[in-house]
Design a protein around this nucleic acid. Sequence first.
DNA 1: CAGTGGTCTAGACCACGGT
DNA 2: CCGTGGTCTAGACCACTGG
Lengths: 233, 233
Amino acid sequence: MTQTRKTSFQDVRDAVIRRIQDQEWPQGSLLPTELELAEEFGCARATVNRALRELAERGIIDRKRKSGTRVCVAPVKQAKFEIAVTRHTVEETNAQYRYSLVDRKQLEAPEWLRARLGLGGVQPALHLRSMHYADNQPFQYEDRWIMLDTVPDAETENFEIIAPGEWLVSRVPFSDAEIVFSACAADETLGRFLGTPTGTPLFQVERTTWFQGQPVTYVRLTFQPGYSMSTRY
Amino acid sequence: MTQTRKTSFQDVRDAVIRRIQDQEWPQGSLLPTELELAEEFGCARATVNRALRELAERGIIDRKRKSGTRVCVAPVKQAKFEIAVTRHTVEETNAQYRYSLVDRKQLEAPEWLRARLGLGGVQPALHLRSMHYADNQPFQYEDRWIMLDTVPDAETENFEIIAPGEWLVSRVPFSDAEIVFSACAADETLGRFLGTPTGTPLFQVERTTWFQGQPVTYVRLTFQPGYSMSTRY
DNA sequence: CAGTGGTCTAGACCACGGT
DNA sequence: CCGTGGTCTAGACCACTGG
């Protein structure tokens, strides 16, 4: 059964991709207009538009009114990482997850934290340090500050059972965030909790989060030695 | 002048975001159908559809036929990193870029590389090692393998002027890739080229690239000490 | 089976930005 | 000015999937 289905936006998108790969439309060259493509593919202009819009979002083509659509010369690769709560990251590897609170203190936000959040003045904050284990092996050390002016409920939560990350996502629907990936050396504390010698190179993620313009939390997640994050695109 | 413009998909999108943030539609709850929202906002269903589709792509809502649209319970954050060629990364910081080839050898692809690329048998490859400098300070050490069966032109290119990354993006329109972020310790070679003691923790990116199913290149980019990658979402 | 999202259409008007 | 993409509409049919 060779079905003669209606041309979908995916057909158009894939055909365009193929032509770019085959250098039929080389880098920097101008594509036909939406109307011309719609005629060629026998579909509505809206269908072509959706296909091309998707490719533009992926950084493959560049669209401008009046000038038209061009193939990007130096396509900027976009790598998308999915950041889940630590429990899910661990359980996805079929390992048993365990969480343990190390320390909980209510303090004033230190100078460096206020600077990072763009705040002046005195700010009450909760400082939490905790460990995440996979199959009882150290997986991740978490050092977190929660801003109590933004999330006052945190003051009465002891965080002995539920990890602060999970507690927060259940309270704060979603938020703006800045995320930083880097390498650091294990200091004495990290070495002790992650079971590795001082000086071991470790992968770390820092995340700063705002909700409706208010600072929610800053967290530094340091992973077990050898950990890596990967993705495809 | 309070313009009474037509409701756009962005208006709908932002209104939905606001209602989720305000917990008017709590996590896990069911949203009205597209038709109901279209009536409420006084627009076409297609407009609502586009707004909600965008939120679904961002992982904020979950859509299923027949069951409807729900607010995600544990929104998986998506961090999108833009990966450009090293020259652009350097020049964006207003630093002067310099590239220098360290070593170029034509070899058979070693066992570990063939395994990573999912290849058996003998495969000719080009092994390139090079340095990228920002304002004459070591910025990044690059260790790259190019598969000559896929990119035969590389055999006659000496790579003394143009960096292999830039040369490749001008040849291979775009491609599938796997990218891995991790931390490593400077070995003797890295320490020498990056001007840092052996053992220094370094941030590194590995990327493996295919074009139309054929392996193009594997590269390991190791950054100067203290380097980090960041993004917002 | 029937409700809900997924998509396509044909047409219209708008908005940006070269010429 | 006017060509090109950007978006909206009203309607239609399709496809998945829960009941």
